[in-house]
Nucleic acid binder design. Structure first.
Lengths: 230, 230
DNA sequence: AGGGTTCTTGACGCTTCCCTGACGCTGGAG
DNA sequence: CTCCAGCGTCAGGGAAGCGTCAAGAACCCT
């Protein structure tokens, strides 16, 4: 979950941002002055800071300096002041971006996304872990637990992909045949039996006692994932 | 020396920026349209790109996409258009900042310093290492492990580039043909067979047993990088 | 216009993959 | 107990995909 720290002394803005950002699935932490902001900064570790320059207790530029003393978190400055000098001072103090009030909410969100994107370069791919192998849907690749690549034929991969897209849920034989062989297939369950056997031989430690590619008699098949823990 | 690439079609702005930036001890490279900009991008390796959206030959957002295909260089967008939608599109395409014309020179310089500061610590070039060769996407060249430059034909390079942009991920034959030969191609897999063989002859120690340019039978090809393991 | 490079195209074995039928096993119903 | 439907397993034939070679066409630089 991405945490955003918003430091502003104007309650309406704080509320508006809080609602909008929460609706976008960010976790929002707020502070009404510079001291509280720095405290929140240390307590939670936000991915981005949105900072108003016009704080009651301390100068915004000093807040930036304080944060930059020990953190490289992206800082987006929010300010009513239009003076160029102000922008230059904030940016040179270590801010990453500067938005002038009144601002468009969509623009702020876009700049926020840009900041988050920069700070998190290592994009996590959607990978599924089972008890005996790992499915990487983006790379179209299956590996064993010790990172050995497993060679799958096109049909084998399509079956794994279809099962993985409905991980832990039952996939009927008819749906599987539709996805892999086309809409005109639906009763050729013998195809599935052959390919499931091949997949188990390639992926399961003990193919005759599968733990990840299960058969649901009379219904279909199910891919069992491992949610994080052993 | 910090190199800045400025892409703009208005000569006065180009000249003003060039003078100001040179006076600040930056090395300045200029381009008058999108195609020249991308060429300069590959030739010199600018630390920051300043990009005008209103280019004569191609849409600015497409230029951003093209750069982001292989480089994480900071991009500051310059535009006369004030519309919020435009800003959001550019930022979401991968731009780092957005400045509206007319702009204050001091503000632009400050935003430039912020961009350089950000990119300075993680100074990673877009270079991919495989078990048998090295691909430098910025320099558009391939070297063997003992720094021998390898001569590639234009088509050969485009194939390597396309595979490298999706390093370790499967690239389907159709996608490869679309990228290299154009959207009207998609079934001419024999082209690929010929060129993959040539590339393997040039790049693989044992062309008949490739370890970096792998074939995924029935699906496509995959370029294997040397990440952390073995 | 010439020589060299690059791209395209066709043909040929070889490998791999997909389909198919036969057989054994299991568990539940009659 | 017998029967049977559904599932797992095995192996072989046909078809499709892949690697390789070579030669003609198109292109580029002097």
């Amino acid at each position: 979950m991405t945490t955003i720290l918003v430091v502003d002394d104007e309650a309406p803005i704080l509320r508006a941002l809080s609602i909008t950002l929460t609706a976008r699935d960010y976790t929002v932490v707020t502070a009404g002055n510079g001291a509280d902001g720095l405290a929140a900064m240390a307590r939670d570790h936000p991915a981005v800071v949105i900072l108003d320059l016009g704080l009651p207790d301390m100068d915004g530029v000093d807040v930036i300096h304080a944060i930059r003393g020990w953190s490289a978190v992206p800082i987006i400055v929010l300010s009513a002041r239009e003076q160029e000098q102000q922008k230059v001072a904030a940016l040179d103090a270590g801010a990453d971006d500067y938005v002038t009030k009144p601002f468009g909410m969509h623009e702020l969100l876009a700049r926020l996304r840009a900041a988050v994107r920069r700070s998190a370069p290592g994009e996590q791919e959607p990978v599924l872990r089972t008890a005996s192998f790992v499915v990487d849907l983006a790379a179209k690749q299956v590996t064993t637990l010790d990172d050995q690549r497993v060679r799958l034929t096109p049909t084998e991969w399509q079956i794994v992909e279809t099962l993985a897209k409905s991980a832990d849920r039952l996939v009927t034989a008819k749906h599987l045949l539709h996805e892999v062989w086309g809409p005109s297939y639906g009763t050729e369950t013998n195809y599935l039996r052959v390919y499931m056997a091949q997949l188990r031989r390639k992926l399961e430690p003990d193919p005759s006692h599968p733990v990840s590619l299960l058969t649901e008699p009379g219904m279909g098949y199910r891919l069992i994932t491992q949610s994080g823990k052993d």
